[in-house]
């Protein structure tokens, strides 16, 4: 994906309760950072090849990229302030 904005990828599945818990947080992040950051959601059940490519061994997993480089990765539930902090640190 070619963009100069930070890209947050949410790797999840529909059957995972922690993923469902995170979903509204990710929605809010997407809304709050509209035009400043890109939020992507990948269902690793549907896209197992993608999951393997990103070495996803558990869900949920959040990875933040900037200029194609992985800047931050978190496995499991994460707070909204932490996500905001990480994205803001990558804004120019």
């Amino acid at each position: 994906m070619k963009t100069d904005k930070p890209v947050l990828i949410d790797f999840h599945t529909v059957w995972c309760a922690p993923c469902r818990k995170m979903a509204p947080v990710i929605d809010k992040i997407e809304e709050d950072f509209t035009g400043k950051a890109v939020v992507m959601r990948i269902d690793v059940d549907k896209s197992s090849d993608v999951g393997r490519a990103y070495d996803i061994k558990g869900v949920p997993v959040f990875i933040l990229y900037k200029d194609g480089v992985e800047k931050w990765k978190h496995n499991g539930i994460v707070t909204e302030p932490e996500l905001v902090k990480q994205i803001k640190s990558q804004l120019r």
């Binding site: 949410d10 999840h12 529909v14 059957w15 309760a17 469902r20 818990k21 979903a23 509204p24 990710i26 929605d27 959601r41 990948i42 269902d43 059940d45 549907k46």
Partner: peptide
């Protein structure tokens, strides 16, 4: 019940209690 067919975005809007 969560359905596998829906998009992840809509998944976040379901009423499953968390």
């Amino acid at each position: 019940v969560e359905k596998d067919e829906k998009s992840s975005k809509s998944a976040s809007k379901t009423s499953v209690p968390c």
